[in-house]
Design a protein around this nucleic acid. Structure first.
Length: 582
DNA sequence: GCCGTTTTCGGCCCGACTGTTTTCAGTCG
């Protein structure tokens, strides 16, 4: 066996198989089972391939003997015979047709059966010729909708509509929310969905509002300046598309049911599926209007969403945990974590200044940090190897430390640590001499080169950095840039295990295009006993406003304040550093 | 296809909106 396939690759095979099964018209539950397994694999930090070979795969929820056999075949032979047979009987293009907005497996099947359409181009040509409307159940409107979505899919290429960075959706979502809250008929409103769960990327934006005049509010929403067009509008739901191509879903409920709607619209879908399954076993039905007791037929609308969980006998589950990753069991047993919050953060250990690629002086950054309620920050400009003329030369770094000590004597209400973001070079060496490293208060070591190296080389570099007594933290450990770069191969088990053993912290970089460690890795780091540090990587005063994104990712990783080193006062923080123990 | 302090068989979350139907299927979240 040359190479074990990655989790994402296996998940993708199962998703394609699920799409074909749907196209074939097989039981929707069979389709859902494959999709569920694919989702499970996509979220797993452990290797699916390894778990398969070791016979542990069926321990995962949603994986039974049939799916295990398919995964095993794929791991051992690189193919799934069931999947290989299917494309020869159905052209591959039918799956693209099934993905069209307004189409689905049933429509794709009818187009193929009755009009021999097997591609996006085929849909476009047939629609333009007015042939789609000859189908029973498809009229002129459906034809126009399919034409429009086929054209935009053809223009976009085969990739699905990209997810957007949470940080890029924050502003339009909040502006729409504020406009809603300004309307006299709106009592309460919030952004729900993956935004509220603080997922690093979102597909669309979900808003909920409480009102007794849903039609008025719905109409008003469609006229907001950000809105380009209305896609749907009913009594409880309005779907619009904004000028910057964001789909926004507004759901409306009377005040008495607002809590039910907010719970429902926050999701995730998987969380809601599990919550409803759980409530069924307890004789209750949960929907967006109320919680209903089967036996008595009594319905309990909830103005507050906490009441939904309370009625089910569960403690309140923070939105960031609602992903179907064991939170319902934990809520039942009362073992949910007390999640870290922004106000727990006392320090920021990764801050740049105009000594390297930052835009403000050290003093300006310090004063802004103090305004943001921080007690200490570490100036960690890039070391010399970063290139592009922005790294700080060794002698300059010594001078910078001096300046920092002078500033500390002068500034009130904020402590500065002298530090550096050093490079873990391709051979694992740190690019500063030991005496210089030893003179610094805090050192974060990052990989900025050699991204293409295989996992063994990357991990050897990390081992070398982790074992260096003067390295206090590993910066943005996976190197990912959301939507742009996958990041290098990373073995989180080994990284977190060694970090725990050497007392080295792992950073959650709060820049919203990094969020690295990602939540699943942060959760594993916590389980393995490694300390995390949430850092802004600020390059300007506004950079401190990124910290909440890092906190969101940490919360999604089930982290408590005690798992995050920069929640303690400076003296206690110093005591946590590995250098203080050597 | 998966799963079980209601079940090893018979369920599987639940409802809104649209278009094209004279009562509902398909899609979406």
């Amino acid at each position: 066996m040359a190479r074990l396939p990655g989790n994402g690759e296996i998940a993708q095979e199962l998703r394609i198989l699920a799409a074909y099964l749907a196209f074939e018209g097989q039981s929707i539950y069979r389709v859902l089972a494959h999709q569920k397994a694919a989702r499970e694999f996509g979220q797993l930090t452990d290797s699916v391939a390894l778990a398969t070979l070791e016979g542990r795969l069926t321990q995962l929820p949603g994986v039974g003997p049939a799916i295990e056999a398919k995964v095993r075949e794929y791991v051992e032979t690189g193919r799934i015979s069931q999947l290989e047979k299917l494309p020869s009987s159905y052209p591959e293009g039918v799956l693209e047709v099934a993905e069209l907005n307004g189409a689905g497996p049933k429509t794709a099947r009818r187009l193929w059966d009755e009009l021999q359409i097997d591609s996006l181009l085929g849909v476009k040509t047939a629609a333009e010729a007015g042939r789609l409307r000859t189908l029973k159940g498809t009229g002129a409107k459906s034809e126009a909708k399919l034409l429009a979505s086929a054209e935009s899919a053809l223009a976009r290429g085969p990739a699905p509509a990209p997810r957007r960075l949470l940080g890029h959706v924050e502003d339009p979502a909040r502006r729409l929310l504020e406009a809603l809250l300004d309307h006299p008929a709106v009592m309460r409103a919030e952004v729900a969905g993956s935004f509220r769960r603080r997922r690093s990327t979102v597909r669309d934006s979900d808003l909920v509002a409480s009102t007794n005049e849903p039609e008025t509010v719905g109409r008003f929403f469609g006229t907001l300046p950000l809105v380009a067009r209305m896609e749907q509008s009913g009594m409880t739901k309005v779907l619009v598309h904004t000028h910057n191509d964001l789909d926004v879903d507004l759901r409306l409920a009377p005040p008495a049911s607002y809590g039910n709607l907010l719970q429902h619209a926050t999701g995730s879908a998987q969380h809601n599926v599990e919550l409803r399954g759980f409530s069924q076993k307890r004789g209750m039905r949960v929907n967006e209007y109320n919680v209903e007791e089967f036996q008595t037929g009594k319905a309990y609308p909830c103005a507050e969403q906490a009441a939904v969980y309370e009625l089910l006998g569960l403690s309140w589950i923070p939105p960031e945990l609602r992903e179907g990753r064991g939170e319902i069991r934990a809520a039942l047993e009362g073992t949910l974590p007390r999640l870290v919050s922004r106000k727990d953060l006392r320090g920021d250990l990764h801050v740049h200044s105009d000594w390297s690629d930052g835009r403000q002086t050290i003093e300006e950054m310090a004063l802004t940090a103090r305004d943001r309620g921080l007690e200490y920050i570490c100036i960690s400009d890039h070391s010399k190897s970063i290139g592009m003329g922005i790294g700080v030369a060794d002698d300059d770094l010594r001078r910078q430390s001096e300046e920092i000590r002078l500033l500390n004597a002068r500034l009130e209400g904020i402590e500065l640590l002298a530090g550096s973001e050093v490079d873990i070079l391709a051979d694992g060496q740190i690019d500063l001499p030991d005496d210089l490293l030893a003179s610094l208060d805090f050192v974060v070591a990052s990989i900025h080169s050699g991204f293409q190296q295989p996992v063994e080389r990357i991990m050897a570099r990390f081992r070398s950095a982790l074992e260096n007594p003067f390295v206090d933290a590993i910066g943005h450990p996976s190197g990912r840039l959301l939507g742009r770069r996958e990041g290098y191969a990373l073995d989180i088990e080994e990284l977190a295990g060694t970090a725990a053993a050497t007392g080295t912290m792992l950073e959650i970089n709060a820049s919203y295009d990094r969020l690295d460690l990602r939540a699943a890795h942060a959760r594993r780091a916590k389980e393995l006993g490694a300390l995390v540090v949430i850092s802004s990587d600020a390059h300007s005063p506004r950079g401190f406003d990124l910290l909440p994104y890092g906190v969101g990712e940490a919360r999604r990783g089930w982290l408590e304040a005690k798992n995050v080193a920069n929640t303690v006062p400076l003296e206690a923080f110093r005591a946590l550093l590995s250098r203080s123990h050597r």
